[in-house]
Design a binder for these strands. Structure first.
Lengths: 217, 217, 217, 217
DNA sequence: CATGAATGAGCTTTCATTCAT
DNA sequence: TATGAATGAAAGCTCATTCAT
């Protein structure tokens, strides 16, 4: 699995254990707030209070407010990726692919808030920090590409490389969609229904449609 | 076609012609700025300057900074919808659906900046203004639902209602995707390639995949 | 007379008259405060209040706190120089030189607070602004050099160039000394006594001392 | 020689040896920093780091940041005075006075940085600590007064008491001047030239000038 | 004695909004 | 209608100082 170098966020506290712990608190607090009011409407004081320490302490563990956003995005990616770790990328069967998709959608469902925050706020990262986050996203999309590619290699699917790439993008975005379009989806489907229907659409397209018709057009 | 009631933005200027004109300038200026720096990082002074009038004048035509965002989002939806107007929603053939999708994707491509702005900033609207914008979005999704539904009614496709709904969502989001994931897509596909490949995936799913296999699983 | 280019301090207010007026207030207020507590211990809010306007208004006329210090130093130099304008630099007589010195010392006495502030705080200017202030100081020293040089040219005094330079420095610093060493001088001399005695020392050295004695040593 | 009572700086450490040692480190570190950025722009953390111990330890040896400044000023005076110790204050000859002046100027030259720091930052001392430092300064000026006075008593010079006082002030300030007006002097004179020329001016005034002329005016 | 994490008062600066002209 | 000077609440961030370990 690709390893993405992490952008270091400076802390004036030396004890690594403590830094880890405080940042956990901070990220948790920040996610809760960003979810409600977004990054820009959340103040550093609020983040400190929600995290359970003072504004001074907050700034012992970061250098700028944007660092909090970066830490949040970074963490969320890591957790999503961690959750996806169990996926068997090598089987190369379609049913394995379906399982992978289902697993990913479930993860998104469980981490709805985090995914929403990351989705909506990541673009507020500076030109400096954004690439690190995008790289991680790319890496996740790559996991789906691999999953699909294996199926192609096993002869279970026939697609060219670019089609594989696009399919992976679609899977990834449709997972996120469950998080960022709740208002349009959650009152229509349960997560299981969503998984079932999206998988079907992804794999089979529109039932009853004759490929030839479109091709001939 | 559904008509969504527009949320009125108060202006202390009475001359409607003038209001229209000033708001045109304002929206144009604001889009240019939001595109670069986002809503929160753009100041009202900058919007006024970019629009070609003074800060005092800006506030003759709006009441709060958020009004500008609302006007921008509102306008973009109207324009996208306007552009989509030519689509024949009644034909009920798959090739007509494909044409509709292609048309929509083209519109998104041409209005990339606007779509990006709306996509990224709409969530900054207050709980007060958001519903108006979401309603417009819903309305657009509905257009695709109608398009698909006609095909079902004509017997060209077989799908239940919820599948139609989800497909419409997918079409809509995948269009926007071209705008908000430029960094991942634009260097891989031209808009025409994107249209061709997405349409294929949407309509036929993964080629060579035997429906039965998945169903049986 | 040399003209030193002034470093521009940006203001977002366009009306030059107003800028002039507000900066007058600001400089007056700032001098009063800097005199009491120094530049670093004075807050921008205090400067605003003392100047008679709000903190927001203060920042309409400057960009950073340091700008205030620069404006203060700049203004003081200009005023001292303005006051010195009357000095006849061309006469070339010793009595004219003595009058010049007396005049300068009087000016320092009248502008004691300002001179003190400038003397103590100028070094807090950034590397960016300092040269402008030093250039003005150099210019003032030059005035004394000219004054002395004329005497040399008229044959009233015999000194080489470097001696002239040093004498001018001494005159300048001893003038300031009256401002920045008040605690040591003001309870011993009146300004008139100070002028008389310093002039005597400057011009005649130590009375009764036989030059030969030192030279021979 | 006058003894000035030293203002005690509280330390919670009892071991006097240790206190002495730590304060030596502290003063050395602080001078280095104050020289670069001034007292106000230097943080206590920086002082601690530069001194080679932690912020906690720093505060074991002082009570407030200002204590550091006081210790620095105090130390510099002591060192300058220590260096001046060799001067024979009793000879009462003009050449001895000249030697004293030269010696003092040399000391200033060697301790440029310290003198500069003290000169620029002493005024930042609180109303509480300032008198102690000023008293030390007075004491140094007194040394020059004594030196001159002896010459008067020996009949080598004729001056009244106030003239003696002023001459001592001038000597003292002109020494410091070499430290605090480097930018104006150091590229024109070497320290030896400066000593020679200043001594000449101090002792003989302006050569070729007829006392009568000024007196008559 | 030494450490350094924690604190929060207080700083400089910004910017949406108002209102007299 | 148009202007732009004035406002001040509120933001991000710093840093002298304390105190538990």
């Amino acid at each position: 699995m690709l390893m993405v170098k992490r952008r270091e966020v400076q802390s004036s506290v030396k004890d690594e254990r403590l830094v880890e712990m405080r940042r956990d608190q901070m990220i948790k607090g920040a996610v809760a707030l960003f979810k409600q009011k977004g990054f820009h409407r959340t103040t550093t004081r609020e983040i400190a209070r929600e995290s359970g320490f003072s504004i001074g302490t907050l700034y012992e563990y970061i250098r700028t407010k944007e660092d909090v956003l970066y830490l949040v995005c970074d963490r969320i990616y890591d957790e999503v990726r961690g959750q996806l770790h169990g996926m068997n990328l090598n089987a190369g069967t379609v049913s394995n692919l379906a399982i992978g998709i289902a697993h990913y959608f479930k993860v998104v469902d469980e981490m709805q808030d985090e995914v929403l925050v990351m989705y909506q706020e990541a673009k507020s990262l500076s030109k400096d920090a954004l690439p690190y986050v995008l790289k991680k996203e790319l890496e996740m999309v790559k996991m789906f590409e691999t999953l699909v590619q294996k199926c192609v290699e096993q002869g279970e699917l026939q697609m060219d490389e670019e089609q594989v790439h696009l399919l992976a993008q679609n899977i990834f975005v449709q997972g996120q969609m469950w998080g960022f379009r709740r208002w349009a989806l959650h009152h229509v489907y349960t997560i299981d229904e969503y998984i079932e229907r999206q998988t079907k659409l992804l794999l089979t397209g529109i039932e009853g449609y004759k490929t030839a018709a479109y091709k001939g057009e």
